[in-house]
């Protein structure tokens, strides 16, 4: 079935905010999420395709409401639970 990430040709996202946006990260946690992704992938806990799959599998409304790096964080958590590295709910304990 169609997934929310597959947006090529989709109408309604509006004008592009073409600002130059020179800062790669807008908060420290964003850089740390990218670091977590790189570190866990390098350790073989998941691969890039599994990571993309985890992002795309988000419910569409949640995907669209989440910021870019929020999606990354959610995907990292999803995969860590799926692989048994953390328990479901452990992050909220």
């Amino acid at each position: 079935m169609a997934r929310i990430n597959d947006v090529g040709g989709f109408e309604g996202f509006g004008a592009i905010d073409t600002g130059d946006d020179p800062e790669p990260f807008h908060a420290d946690w964003e850089a740390r999420v990218v670091g977590l992704f790189n570190a866990l992938r390098a350790q073989g806990i998941f691969n890039t395709n599994e990571f993309r799959d985890a992002i795309e599998s988000m419910p569409p409304a949640e995907y669209l409401a989440a910021s870019y790096y929020e999606r990354w964080f959610r995907a990292v958590c999803t995969l860590l639970e799926r692989k048994g590295v953390i328990e479901p709910g452990e992050l909220d304990a």
Binding site: V7, G8, G9, F10, E11, F13, G14, A15, I16, D17, T18, G19, D20, D21, P22, L64, Y68
Partner: peptide
Amino acid sequence: PSWYKSEAYRS
């Protein structure tokens, strides 16, 4: 840049 990752640009 953020715009490159945006749905608006990608779509």
